[in-house]
């Protein structure tokens, strides 16, 4: 695989191949009943690893477990649990 002449990357957004979900020690769990679909968690997610909807869907491939979504959810529909727990 021959390299380009300098550190030029031709595939935009190919960082997607790096699944940062393995970084987590805590993970967010959405209570589908409580979620009102406001989308604030999607807005505040730094990765982003949330898809809008009612309920929202967490993309665990990339979620780093920062906890912003749980902290900001206006109806407390997201809780952070130990990775490995259901």
């Amino acid at each position: 695989m021959k390299l380009p002449p300098s550190t030029i990357i031709l595939k935009p957004g190919n960082s997607e191949q790096n699944e940062t979900g393995s970084w987590r020690s805590l993970k967010p769990v959405v209570d589908a009943e409580k979620c009102n679909g406001c989308g604030l968690c999607w807005l505040y997610c730094p990765e982003p690893a949330i898809t809008k909807g009612k309920p929202v869907v967490i993309d665990y491939r990339y979620c780093k477990g920062c906890g912003i979504c749980a902290n900001e959810c206006p109806v407390k529909a997201i809780v952070m649990v130990e990775e490995g727990q259901k």
């Binding site: 935009p12 957004g13 190919n14 960082s15 997607e16 191949q17 790096n18 699944e19 940062t20 970084w23 406001c38 989308g39 807005l43 730094p46 990765e47 982003p48 690893a49 809008k52 993309d59 491939r61 990339y62 780093k64 477990g65 920062c66 906890g67 912003i68």
Partner: peptide
């Protein structure tokens, strides 16, 4: 919420710290 474009021009998989404000 509608005022925020759906398009993500920054892909996930970047190495910012969890909870990074700058990203």
């Amino acid at each position: 919420m509608k005022q925020f474009s759906e398009e993500e021009l920054l892909a996930p998989g970047h190495r910012a710290c969890p909870g990074c404000g700058s990203i």
